[in-house]
């Protein structure tokens, strides 16, 4: 009666999706925070960290847009 298959599918997909986005955002945030402190000692290293952090936030932005795409039925 209960559709275990689709339940497990939803659970696994949600777990992976949530973990991935939280991981990316957390790494980005850690790098950003480090970058602001590192800038004083080693400006170049700070810059690299900042660039990586921004890229990661960009990936998050793409994931958010994908979420919007999934929500709006007109897109698919």
């Amino acid at each position: 009666m209960i559709e275990w298959e689709s339940f497990v599918l939803v659970a696994v997909v949600s777990l992976v999706a949530a973990s991935v986005i939280v991981t990316i955002a957390s790494i980005g945030i850690r790098l950003l925070e480090n970058a602001t402190h590192a800038q004083k000692q080693d400006p170049r290293q700070g810059k690299v960290r900042l660039a990586v952090a921004r890229t990661l936030f960009g990936v998050c932005g793409v994931l958010v847009l994908f979420g919007v795409y999934l929500i709006v039925p007109a897109f698919h």
Binding site: E3, S6, L9, S14, A17, A18, V22, S26, L70
Partner: peptide, 25 residues
């Protein structure tokens, strides 16, 4: 804030997955 973000990311992921994979929650 970290918990809030984690909780909402989970909520969003779960709801989107459930709507699109056919197990309404």
């Amino acid at each position: 804030p970290a918990q809030g973000f984690a909780a909402e990311a989970s909520t969003t992921a779960t709801i989107l997955a459930s709507t699109h994979l056919g197990f309404a929650l």
